[in-house]
Design a protein around this nucleic acid. Structure first.
Lengths: 120, 120, 120, 120
DNA sequence: GTGGTCTAGACCACC
DNA sequence: GTGGTCTAGACCACA
């Protein structure tokens, strides 16, 4: 198995998530040109078609766009980026709280533990 | 791929995590007898040897013990359980904070967002 | 070149149009199961992946859906079908009127010619 | 593929159609001199022989004529032009009605929709 | 058998 | 060189 990915969900979905995190986190900044499909495919050791598919979906999500023959770019729509960041954060939050609840932690405890952890 | 597991890490490790969460979260209570290796293997659609290996490790971790021919039991050592719970919580915390940091959220923001989320 | 298609636009787009017309025109009725990806591919003498891509888009358009392992079906959403029919009709109308305008026909003439043609 | 044409039918036939529309629609007026074969070929990014062939056919159709060394001209025969215009219109009509029929529209509906569309 | 995914490799248009 | 499309063929999970 490719070190970048796990086998539970399709690689193209994992790529979408990975790209979205990069954009939401500002690693890929708005308006920036990203590497070519082929280069990304080489970097992730994945077939170019798989990257292509992920990038097409990124476009459908409004987070990237293609400039014909001159490459693909991160959207310049800051709102879209912020919205994506928000959504990802919400997902992380939900997962985290869910996992903590499974461990039997109540709301106050979760909040307290987080504050402790953060102030380390 | 088995729906219960992902392919990145060995299944027995995933089983250990799963069992530990159950014990830490109180789904399996202290001193309780757990299903037989065979039944667990059937339920998770996994080779009995894999379950067996996970249970042996649970014993090494001090979270379960075997009573000869009468089955395996969750430990009665409350301290061990609390310690495991603590460790899992710390891991979840670290993962969560890390993911949020990747999205560019600072300590205060994370704390604030969590409080908002929790109080919904 | 495949007799079913022309080379101007991608085959998968032509398939989407073709499928949409079939649904809008009632050749494929709401809720009906359509042939398998492989069968459609054989019939149109096209690669299964190309059909697959078209069907995925049909799903995104809300005109078809997939029932996991039991095949793909025309949507049961009559509204969606009517909406698609409407859209196609509008496109045909626009194209037609445009072509007639290019030939120098005015509104009244177009209308008159259509009535003549229809009543043949 | 050349953006002006599709690959299903020979380019010279498509040129004939294009020229005929121009004449029928009055873009090229009766008696007017048209660009040279070479210029037309350059404009459509097509082999001069292809343009040549189309023009010869236009002559056979009675829509153009050649005046030896001084170039080619649109016919001055108004009847021929009207006749061609009529034929094209009839084709467009037939195509349109056919497409609408495929969508399940009856004669009255087609007529009504056209009137609606036109009066926008 | 079904759909879903991935790979490898090819060709095209655009510039 | 870029992205876009298509084919051929493979493997998987589901049931």
């Amino acid at each position: 198995m490719n070190k970048h990915f796990q086998d539970n969900s399709p690689i193209y979905l994992q790529l979408i998530h990975l790209f979205t995190v990069r954009i939401a986190g500002g690693v890929w900044v708005a308006g920036q040109r990203v590497d070519s499909v082929r280069d990304l495919a080489m970097h992730f050791k994945v077939n170019p078609n798989t990257v292509q598919r992920a990038l097409v979906e990124m476009e459908a999500l409004g987070l990237m766009n293609t400039a014909g023959t001159s490459g693909r770019f991160v959207t310049s729509d800051q709102d879209a980026i912020l919205h994506a960041r928000d959504k990802l954060a919400r997902e992380e939050l939900a997962e985290f709280v869910d996992a903590m609840s499974q461990l039997g932690y109540g709301r106050d405890e979760i909040s307290r533990l987080l504050d402790e952890h953060i102030s380390e």
